[in-house]
Structures are given as C-alpha cells and as structure tokens.
Amino acid sequence: MNNAMTRFKSPRAGLLLLMLLAVLVAAVLGYKQLSRPLQSQPFGNPDKALASTPVSFAVTQALPQAVNLDVRKVTLGQQLFHDARLSKDNTISCASCHSLDSGGVDNRARSVGVAGGVGGINAPSVFNSGLNFVQFWDGRAASLEDQVEGPVNHPLEMASSWALVLDKLGADATYSSNFGTLYSDGITTANIKDAIATFERSLVTPNSRFDKFLQGNVNALTLEERTGYELFQSYGCASCHQGQNLGGNMFEKMGLMGDYFADRGHLTEADKGRFNVTHHPDNLHEFRVPSLRNVALTAPYFHDASAATLEQAIAIMAKYQLGRPMPAPDLTAIAAFLRSLNGQYNGQQL
C-alpha cells in the first residue's frame, strides 16, 4: 500500500494523471459542442459555411452527373417502365405510382392499382433508388431487380403474373426484336427485370442547388438554407440522412425517443416494418431511412403518409427521433434547406 502511494505521488505519475484529466475534459466539452443545436442565426460570414460544419457530420456528397449504363438497356427499360401491359388489365404501369413528372411518386397516401385496389403503404420515390442499399420501406428486396417482382404480382397493384406478361410482350414484334438484340435468350422474366432495373439506376437527379453548394458555390444556397443545413447537422438529422442520397443506406426504428405508433393509433401490418421480413422482435417498427433528395416534391411523408408538409414531417422527427423540441425558426430553416435538394432529371429542373 505504501509503495503504491509512493508511485502515485511521484512527479511522473502526477503528470500522467493531469494529462488524462485534460483529455477527459476536452472530450466532454467536444461532445457538448457537437451535440448542441445552433442558434437560429444566419452565419456571420457565409463564405465559411462549409468550414463551420462539424467535421464528424460532413458525410454528404454531391450526386454524380450520370451513371455508366448500357444506353440500349436504359431505353428498353424506360419503355417497360411506362408500359401498362405489365398489369393484368393493361391499366397500371410502373410510372402510374412513380411519376417522373412529380418527384418519382404519385403524391397519394396510398397508391391505386388494378380495379381500384389500394395499397397498404406510401410509395417511395423511384428517383435515385439505385443508391438505396435495399428496396421497399421494409427492405425486403435486396436489389432493384428483386423490387420489380413485387408490384407485378401484388394483387392490389398490377395483379399480374410473369406468364401473362411474357405472353403480352412476346406478341409485340418490336419488343421481341429489341430483347433479341440485347439478350441472347430474348424475352424472359430475368431480362425484363434487368432492363427495368437498369433504367431505374439511370434516374439520378444531380445539380440541385445543394449539390452546387457542396461543389464549392457557397452562394448557391441562401443564408436561411445554409443555416438550415448547419441545424440539420447539429440536431443530429445527418446521423441517419447522410451520403449521396441523404438517406437510403440504413434501417432505423420509427419512434426512438417516443412511442410514435401508440400516439398515432390505428396500427396496420405495414407499421411493423422490417419485422414483417425478419420476424425478429428487435426489427419491429424499423424502416429503411428514406432519401431526402427531391423531398419537397414527394409529399405526403413517411411510410404511413402521416405528414402532409415538410414542416410537419420535421416536427415529428424532432419529437420521436431526436426527443427534443425544435423552435419554429429552426424548423423553418431546416425546411428551407430541404427544399434546396430538388435536382434535375434529363437536364430539366424538378
């Protein structure tokens, strides 16, 4: 015991103890600084917008200008994407629920399929879907090719079968020729899915004002939008909405800091989220984090379409995901930032 006390009191041990305490204090202060929401004030110097971004959250990247794909397959997939013959009664195409004129969605709470059938979940955007790590809200499709399988066979969507689709397309001389040119085995289920998925991978929407900001044009965003971007990070929104797609690359539980579903009520099967795929209790109410690209165009929001506006969606996220109130000026600034995420498709502003 006496020897231990002697070692502790030695100058070297004391110095090491002081250094350890200094590191701990710095770590605590650093954590508080990063976790503290910014005041609702515009930047003193807008040219320092990027420099003032906390490094630990600087994980967002601009979208690529284009994706390297077989243009012939893209063209074929585009035709199939808009072809209602994929549905049982020739009335519903992929574009019926994923309009390329309105943010890649139909802006309905629930999509309407064959014979007026109504789906059980809000349709996500098809734009930039090739950047998602899985497809569907519950992640049940590992790829875009797998995703095509769902709507074609779903009784409330296209209500068709691959046998019926193959018969219809096989009777079309143009399709027979185009498939024969691109695929050695012609029109098959796998080749139809490949062509549609290839087209969907082409649906990137670069050149948003935010992309230009990330590329160095600080003036591409207004002061309010830049303030919103910093708040988006300091509140912790960027911990789930990051990467090129500002989302789409992880699962998260809806209601981390409050019981969203108990407060909302009227539970549905879709509310179980990823649990419906894995049947594991830990996955109850987990969903793929949605991309925020073009989010201003894709209302209503969330899998259940419970938020009609961006402001409502942000308020819900602040309450149930962040567990903290958000002052109105902060909410408005974040909404302004999110409206800067609208990109271009085929050179036209969305």
Rank of each mutant, 00 (worst) to 15 (best):
T205P: 02
L156C: 00
F199T: 06
C240Y: 04
M1Q: 10
K48H: 08
S52R: 12
T227Q: 15
A22N: 04
L297D: 00
R264I: 09
N283K: 12
S143I: 11
V277A: 07
A49L: 08
S239R: 10
G347F: 05
P42V: 14
F133E: 00
T188G: 02
F127V: 06
P206W: 13
K48D: 07
V152D: 06
A49V: 03
S202C: 12
N283D: 15
M19C: 13
L338H: 03
V152N: 08
T53S: 06
F43V: 00
N276G: 14
Q39N: 05
H303W: 08
C94H: 00
G180H: 09
D70G: 12
E149V: 05
Q61C: 08
I334R: 10
V134S: 04
I121A: 13
Q65R: 09
G228C: 07
A22H: 01
V152K: 11
V295M: 03
D304I: 11
M158P: 03
K48M: 07
T188D: 00
D83T: 04
M250F: 09
L341E: 06
S35H: 05
A238N: 09
G323T: 02
L20F: 11
L24V: 15
E225A: 12
S129C: 15
A141R: 09
D194H: 11
R226Y: 03
R201I: 14
N128I: 09
L76Q: 02
D330A: 12
Q233C: 03
L284V: 11
L310P: 02
L29F: 06
T222D: 14
Y235D: 01
N90D: 12
A13M: 13
Y320L: 14
Y301T: 03
M326R: 09
I316Q: 15
M257K: 15
M257P: 01
P11A: 10
S125M: 03
G170M: 15
S143R: 12
V23L: 15
L20M: 13
D263Y: 06
S291F: 01
A336Q: 02
K168I: 07
G236A: 02
L203R: 02
D282G: 00
V118Q: 11
K88T: 06
Q61I: 04
A109R: 14
T188I: 10
T174E: 08
A190Q: 13
S340V: 12
I92T: 13
L100G: 00
D304C: 09
V23I: 14
T53Y: 11
E145I: 14
A195N: 10
R36T: 14
G236S: 01
D70H: 08
Y31K: 03
L231K: 00
N294Q: 03
F251R: 09
R72L: 08
H279E: 10
V134H: 00
P329L: 13
S125H: 01
N283A: 13
T268A: 06
V112M: 02
G255Y: 12
D101V: 05
H280W: 03
S102A: 13
Q348S: 11
A49Q: 02
G258A: 14
M250W: 02
R288Q: 06
I187L: 07
G247W: 03
K319Y: 09
T91Y: 00
A190V: 12
V204W: 04
S40I: 02
D194P: 05
Q147L: 05
L310G: 07
A123D: 06
M1F: 08
A335S: 15
H279A: 15
G273H: 11
F302N: 06
V118K: 11
G77M: 03
